[in-house]
Design a binder for these strands. Sequence first.
DNA 1: ATAATTTTTTAATCTCACCTAAACAATAAC
DNA 2: GTTATTGTTTAGGTGAGATTAAAAAATTAT
Lengths: 226, 226
Amino acid sequence: MKNTVSISQENYLKVIFKLQNEHGIASNQSIAEKLEATPAAVTGMLRKLASLEWVEHTAYQGAVLTAKGQRIAISTIRKHRLWEVFLVDKLKFKWDAVHQWAEELEHIGDADFTERLDAFLGCPATDPHGDPIPDANGDWTGNERVIGADKLSREQIFTVRGVSNSASDFLQHLDALNIHLGKRFEVLDHFPFDGSWEWSDENGESLRISREVAGQLLVELSKKEK
Amino acid sequence: MKNTVSISQENYLKVIFKLQNEHGIASNQSIAEKLEATPAAVTGMLRKLASLEWVEHTAYQGAVLTAKGQRIAISTIRKHRLWEVFLVDKLKFKWDAVHQWAEELEHIGDADFTERLDAFLGCPATDPHGDPIPDANGDWTGNERVIGADKLSREQIFTVRGVSNSASDFLQHLDALNIHLGKRFEVLDHFPFDGSWEWSDENGESLRISREVAGQLLVELSKKEK
DNA sequence: ATAATTTTTTAATCTCACCTAAACAATAAC
DNA sequence: GTTATTGTTTAGGTGAGATTAAAAAATTAT
Ligand SMILES: [Mn+2]
Ligand SMILES: [Mn+2]
Ligand SMILES: [Mn+2]
Ligand SMILES: [Mn+2]
């Protein structure tokens, strides 16, 4: 009766959780892509997870987590993000290098371990990419005031709060642009031709931002004053 | 050609390393016991490790690590002990609770990761059980002055430096006796009848130590003065 | 509505690490 | 030096988690 969850199962539950939040249901193919596995492998695992009552699987439709499955997924995400904080804050990794290791560390430790880690890190609210860290009960509050940087208008002042893409090539590009979480900018201009932007930072230095970059940056509007 | 080492393989190499240091060669059965596997499973893995050139396996004799195998084993031991320091120093685990987690954590991270962890922990020389932590090159110096507490004689003054058994029941027993690394004692008496001892601590409190406990405590003699 | 395409499932295999039981070597006992 | 005992290997098999290739269902296009 030891219903213990395997590493592979945790990875599946985590991916299904994220897909389900985006599209309401996780399709076989979308799961396969994220996990770099074949659709056939996904079918097999979904049957397994369904038999464990962690997902509900409707043939040819896709999968949705049960309450129990969601609990496991959120706990894994919590551990993933806490470890990312550890890697950046304590081990001084760059934010583009932590995902791979957190992907392994997230499978280690029980509830007690996780609470110790959380306390040691000072109970951080977000991970190095601005993603919220669920609390020990699995609850969390996303920052509701955060919007995509491609939704801004001229003269708005805003603070960078997160990224919707944590791939290292994107994060390294942000480093090259000297864009990091917590930095404030003002929108100087927007160019419909290519969707690009001109922003200025707090020192008045102006920089150009491509549509691709703005589309994956999450920002929070500031009160009108600078 | 990706010659990557699996978790199971690292566990085998680590166990073979320790057995080989004790007995010159690691027998099939001794490996099986430590890993809680059957001798048949060990034979299979030894064939695999031999084909990877990490051990030399002579049928019916036993296994010895190659230079490459030794490198992997020592690196795993280094990671294990560094993680144990992390768990005790940073996450405030008791020393009897860290082994199980370190057994998993030791398989995570590359050389760069390990050096960051080492630096973060302040390059500790020993783990929470007094075992030496190999350096990044795989070199380490055991404390040559350390002897078993069952080798002491009356009136000798000594400091507890380590344990030769890290099982949690033993460590918890030491906690109950209020014996910890770094604590100094003096030998008051030794009783050949049952091999037990009488020691006194620095406050003059005397305590009785069984043969079993003394046999698994590692101590360092102090200069004659108290 | 039928045909073409895409997605999912099934079926048959694979690898890894393990198991039990039987055969076989090496050691120890007499 | 046979015999008994112990240790090791072989043979056959399991289960988890993958794979490829073919069949089947769902979706989209004509
Ligand atoms: Mn993972
Ligand atoms: Mn993250
Ligand atoms: Mn291990
Ligand atoms: Mn230790």
